[in-house]
Design a protein around this nucleic acid. Structure first.
Lengths: 155, 155
DNA sequence: CTTGAAATGCAATAATATAACATATCATTT
DNA sequence: AAATGATATGTTATATTATTGCATTTCAAG
């Protein structure tokens, strides 16, 4: 897989910090930990997996806690909820004025975010009167690898 | 709202019957009742609402029953699952070779299916190597009415 | 009419998410 | 530094959505 992508977690964190400050939001310790985990993971993560991962070993952590942190991150454009997977992923783009588009592989349950430039045309045509603005568009399918693996003759 | 659309439930049922027969599937009484309800309703319906609606008053009906019927309908191209809403809707198109596209209003929780012609271009660009084939694409947003109602000056 | 496959009934439970209320944290003003 | 008020978090309970496993029924084919 592609560890070459997402090279700069520290940078992303700093940018997030700045972004929150600018918008009057507080990137608290918990929220920061959730965001950092999503960044490190790179792939969509389930809420209850986040809970397991971030809980201090002995203590319990209520689902609410995680969901609230996720709501904050999503609200500030730092993460997406992927309805197709009931999962959450760090946002890798600042979608200035465009609706985010996610390619979601139903086989390996990974996702890729399309850059704005590539997605133009997607939100324009066919939408007559429908205001596609908030949230993301999810395109379900099979990613390159999974499509290849599923093919009869391709290793 | 638009009662003018979806005029021919009997016709759709007959077509579904034929379609299932041709594919070696059995459109049983239960499945037919579920499909018919989805058709009559026209809008996305929750699984547990289907359960309530289709249950014989005194008796109980297990969720499994509904989910299995829905799986069948989806498998035979007669319905879609809308991940955004955790809901199910009758399919109004026969997507010959194209991936269905649904506009989902997050405000009123209704959906509209885009005809294939209108959706072309949607699945082509930007997908390099990603095989968008099964399932539907969901574009979340606000429908005309809701967008208008949300606007300050528009009644 | 038997038989085997498919469908349904039924009970339990898993996975995902929210509500309501108490407590803690933190920036700001005194 | 203490008081205050807003924001965030903890805690408990519960709602919503979905699946699993096994028993029974239905139904078309032989």
């Amino acid at each position: 897989m592609d560890e070459t992508r997402r090279p700069d977690i520290a940078g992303q964190l700093a940018e997030a910090e700045a972004r929150c400050a600018a918008r009057g939001g507080r990137l608290t310790r918990l929220r920061r930990r959730v965001f950092e985990f999503l960044l490190q993971c790179g792939n969509p993560v389930k809420a209850y997996d986040l809970q397991d991962a971030l809980r201090i070993p002995g203590k319990r952590m209520a689902p609410t806690t995680i969901y609230r942190a996720l709501d904050f991150l999503i609200g500030h454009g730092l993460a997406h909820r992927i309805d197709t997977l009931n999962a959450y992923v760090a946002c890798t783009d600042r979608h200035e004025g465009h609706q985010p588009v996610l390619l979601v592989c139903s086989l390996c349950e990974k996702s890729v975010e399309i850059a704005d430039a590539d997605a133009s045309g997607l939100t324009d045509a066919a939408l007559a009167g429908f205001l596609a603005r908030t949230d993301s568009i999810e395109i379900k399918g099979a990613c390159k690898q999974c499509a290849a693996n599923a093919q009869p003759g391709t290793p």
